[in-house]
Amino acid sequence: MILEAKGLRKLYGEFCALDGVSLGIDAGEFVSIVGPNGAGKSTLINILTGVVRPSAGTVRFKDREIGGAGPARLARLGMARSFQLVHVFPDLTVLETLQAAVVARLGRAARLFRSLARDREVQAGALEVAELFGLADKRHVPARQLPQGDKKLLDVASAFALKPVIILLDEPTSGVSTADKTAIMDTLVTASKRIGLRAIVQVEHDMDIVFAYSDRIIALHQGKVLADAAPGTILADQRVMDTVIGRKAASPRALSC
């Protein structure tokens, strides 16, 4: 098991965002986390990626306890992530963005006097990822001038440039037109094979995407795991389908754990 969480609980004051969530991600899996708004998806991703420290419970990554380890350390350990809202470096070009990721991966971020332009490994590594994501033609365009879809792609591409073991994507296709969604997902899957990624975890709202690409679906509801099964099983479970996809969550909750 690559990533394993046990008994995760997160309280924000009285509000209980996560209430005893356990899950495991195996090598070779593409897992989607779904659930209505406020189910605790973002909190879960933030805990799994070390941004938020759980109130209780443990997260183990590659057999190491990583609760609250911080994103920089996790990135170096081989866990990458992308954000729900696009995160780019506005003044850096596509290539520079990817170079930064490669530099970080190779542990060269503290090289003060070496020439970046003459670092062949970094140059080639960045270009390879740009090509993989179809961004090679725009490699000299500053990120802020890219269309929204490309920004999203660049955000994900920079996470891939880390050649991580596992990648956690917070709504990789949000804010993108339906037509582009499939293209992004196909690019993602192809790229993950090329770089030898072991597992992908995504939070996603678009159920067509979820059912088309996932090996397993974890449905959250009111901070608890409602179901954790293959897409076929989920589809057959009327209760889960109603809660997660059918209507919005029954009522806004203010439960205490």
Partner: peptide, 9 residues
């Protein structure tokens, strides 16, 4: 925040 997720200190 993004720099940090790339593993940059």
């Amino acid at each position: 925040a993004k720099a940090e997720t790339l593993g940059i200190g």
